[in-house]
Nucleic acid binder design. Sequence first.
DNA 1: CAAAATACCTATTGACACAGTAGGTAAATG
DNA 2: CATTTACCTACTGTGTCAATAGGTATTTTG
Lengths: 131, 131
Amino acid sequence: MISTRGRYALRVMIDIATNQGDGHVPMKDVAERQGLSLKYLEQILPPLTRRGLLIGIQGKGGGYRLTRDPKDYRIGEVLRLTEKDLEPVGCLKEGAPVCERRNICKTVDFWQGLNTVVNDYLDNHTLQDLM
Amino acid sequence: MISTRGRYALRVMIDIATNQGDGHVPMKDVAERQGLSLKYLEQILPPLTRRGLLIGIQGKGGGYRLTRDPKDYRIGEVLRLTEKDLEPVGCLKEGAPVCERRNICKTVDFWQGLNTVVNDYLDNHTLQDLM
DNA sequence: CAAAATACCTATTGACACAGTAGGTAAATG
DNA sequence: CATTTACCTACTGTGTCAATAGGTATTTTG
């Protein structure tokens, strides 16, 4: 399941892309347009600014703007930063404790394949595709 | 995320397929071989027997057995019965309340596409493939 | 310089699902 | 009749989700 964190993040980025012009877009406006809680959005965005997908400017006249052209954001990139778990099973997660049945597990390859299929889909669509 | 319910269900079916011979396989044995809780497995299986993927025989000498050849079970079939939510987002779920933003939603097609990609993968693999 | 507007940070909360545990009943066999 | 099995239902601790809440830091504007 994709949680609201990832889904809202995408909606925010679409909204910013649509409304930024050559200025910045206050998150308050985005929250109003999208019908989402400003306070909630505020805690979803930090990973995106930290990794440089967005720039946030404080103070009056500030707000957010994109750092790239919409076609240069892969959806997978956004979701991997905002979703806690995007892998179908925990044992595929980076840094997960090595499963003791790893050697005899008959299903791990299957889950790895699913993970690949999902990430390929997410990475083959861009923000532009959603606009 | 695929939960333990679906993952265990698959391991159980693999185990039954491997061990049934022409008799029945007691779940107690499966639980021991797989290192899983018998009591937990008992509440995962009912949807599978109800829908005829497994037959369960009570009493001494009883247990479970498959009703088809392993190559005739699609993985997606098993997971859709044992997992609560397999859809990537709630609004795609059958019987979900119609989203009021449905008409203007820019992302629903994208999520529908992801759902298709996942289900295609799951349905193009069989129990046989995991053995 | 003061006030307003903005991003940014951290704590708390209610509801719910997950992953079991527990204790039983029903049916079939030897 | 005793044993073995499936099957049924209730309960529980833990954690995540989806917010709400209250604050601080920074910048622009009047």
